[in-house]
Amino acid sequence: MKKSVIKVLIFCLLLTPIWVSAAKKDEVNWNYVLKKQYFRGQTIIESDDIIEIEVPYRAEDPALVPIKIISKIKQTSQNYIKKILVLVDNNPMPFVGEFKFTPLSGQADLAMRIRVNSYSYIRVIAETSEGKLYMTKKFVKASGGCSAPIGNDLDAAMKRLGKMKFKFDKHRQAGKPLQTQLLISHPNITGMQMDQVTRFVKKSHFIKQFKVTFNGQSVLKAKVDIAISADPNFRFYFLPEQGGELKAEFTDTSCESAVSRKVCSKGKRYSISQIMTD
């Protein structure tokens, strides 16, 4: 019994320096690369008071890691969360997306599915209407095994490409933000295949932006990239004070490189709309 405790202790001690150095490396990468790239010269407060993020402890399927961002403040016209940036530090392309909210969003919560390539922090940085920045982060362990961070059935995804649907919370309450799900069918191809294996060449092909409006007013507007899982799925809120038209539009693109956005095609535009009654 004692022996095993000692063994565990020794094992932990052996592991400690690796963990510390990995964590340090992540912080260095954040401070000197990512932060400079996205928030040069700006102050970011690290806190869970404005937003929080929920992620699974282990990314069971690295191709589809469900994450949930929860906002802690109300979206009022005086003070609201204006923008949320999501990054996965150790992805080949850390940028997951930038999401813009309005008071009409009702609540700046957002759930989505992302690709996580290896052990990494997932960071969420929120900007309030006052221009203040808050960051929260969680560590995700990518699981081993056989599934790679791409879709399972490319043909099925290509066949459905462009199809969209909305799903709503069944318990709609007057005056309260309504939880809404937007499903988009798109393979969101990363373009990260290894061509020398088979000479199979496929450019990246992904959704680059989407927006959701209610009666023409913005609810959610986003720029996204290849870290969004195949068949993108977003859950968010909006305030349907009265009946009207909920509309979603997205534009995709195809780029020459998986990690550079210098040479990209214009892509296509898709849309869906749904009439909501009072």
């Binding site: 790679a148 961070p149 490319l154 990260m192 295949q193 088979t198 199979f200 496929k202």
Partner: peptide, 21 residues
């Protein structure tokens, strides 16, 4: 579909083979 699956996955597989196996 095997060649395509190899091409889209091998980049990741080769990385993970070293790291995890």
């Amino acid at each position: 579909n095997l060649a395509r699956a190899m091409a889209t996955r091998s980049h990741y597989y080769i990385d993970k083979a070293a790291e995890q196996l």
